[in-house]
Design a protein around this nucleic acid. Structure first.
Lengths: 219, 219
DNA sequence: CGCTACATTGACAGCGTTCAAGGTAAGTGG
DNA sequence: CCACTTACCTTGAACGCTGTCAATGTAGCG
């Protein structure tokens, strides 16, 4: 089993990896499949091998907030309650490692590197949520879009300024950024008319002025 | 030393509490004091005994996002990086337990209850941030205010629907809710004119229709 | 009393939502 | 191969909420 390139497994010895793999399973999902639903009992933890995935939370009145997009190396399923407080859905076909939560945590007690890797990943998740919080609290629609582009550029495998694939729908982008699909469309149009991006296809973006996009995303 | 009423110390034996207190200090702060600044080296962890406190993050362009308000029992300082990525400021005079982070974590390794308490607290923090994310992404100004009222009602000691003390300024409320002070003022005025609240003083709110406020806050 | 900091209110503009219509791409069946 | 369907995206117009700028009001304090 190949554990390369997963932060979770950095710096572990072959022996430790062997113990880990004894209860890891590789699961394959199709686009649209759920890893698990919101409020389902929390038993498993996943590490993304390939594919794009979204984490969503639906409120009692039906409004949806996407909490994050996941890419290879990302980790999901952490919770200290006994139920997941979010649902996780595949945007594309995807492969993931699946671990029994309790057994993973038990092993982490014996393998310090694994434990520190888990902490590192959790802390990364937290830090990203804080970034998103700032974006939602402080920024305009087109700036939020730029933030999303920079996020994809950084995390989505194969993404380059010349071609960023949007593996999610406009609705997904809207629900992630706290906007409506119309505003997403219009903001895309604005960025295009300002000469900062082009959209070679419906589901891809080419960045023409990376500095400007970065500026809009982060300032 | 009194460790009552702090989630962090639930279910610990007198002996364990004794070991904990050996490196805990009670620190007193004045309103306006910072526990620590953003980007300062992360060495200490705090547990609020009394007072109201805010956690803030300032971006490179000077805009400020308040990440949370803290009240007795809350925990702050957790980070896996070696620097705090937020600053923490007292809104009122406050007392806190201060722990050396490394020593607290080391003790947690030996005391399972402490460890599970730390995890529980961290997870609570995370869950609250997710709530806030939803609020910022999906809700209107007056709904965000109601969310804040419900939060204070739940967490601020002594808060009742008859009297909720606003220990923070309008600017703080605005920076927490992703609004401007003018919008906060106007939304307060609207809630008043709709007969849902009154404001006995500048810094307190009385809730007249709790069901309606709750509805606005959560749906 | 007057200063200062903070909060409220008003006018106005702009951004984002809403509602509605039109366009585009992919898939299906004739 | 083409019409038709369907799902998704874009665009337009009107409205309303929120931000901005400016003026006014208010509480606390020397």
């Amino acid at each position: 089993m190949l554990f390369d390139d997963c932060t979770l497994f950095h710096d572990m010895t072959p022996d430790e990896l062997e113990r880990l793999s004894s209860f890891a399973e590789i699961k394959k999902f199709k686009a649209g499949d759920f890893l698990f639903f919101q409020n389902a009992p929390a038993g498993e933890v996943y590490n993304v091998i390939s594919g794009s995935i979204e984490v969503e939370r639906i409120s009692c009145n039906g409004r949806r907030q996407i909490l994050s997009f996941l890419f290879p190396g990302d980790f999901v399923g952490l919770t200290s309650s006994d139920r997941y407080d979010y649902g996780v859905k595949c945007l594309t076909d995807a492969e993931l490692f699946q671990f029994n939560r309790k057994r993973l945590y038990a092993l982490a007690e014996e393998v310090p590197n694994l434990k520190s890797n888990i902490n590192q990943v959790s802390s990364k998740v937290f830090s990203r949520i804080l970034d998103q919080l700032y974006i939602l609290g402080q920024k305009k629609a087109h700036e939020r879009l730029c933030f999303l582009f920079m996020l994809l550029l950084e995390r989505q495998p194969g993404a380059t300024p010349e071609r960023i694939t949007l593996s999610m729908s406009r609705q997904d982008m809207a629900d992630y950024l706290g906007l409506t699909i119309e505003t997403v469309s219009r903001s895309l149009a604005k960025l295009k008319s300002d000469g900062l991006i082009t959209t070679p296809t419906l589901n891809s973006v080419q960045i023409l002025d990376l500095d400007a996009i970065e500026e809009l995303a982060h300032t």
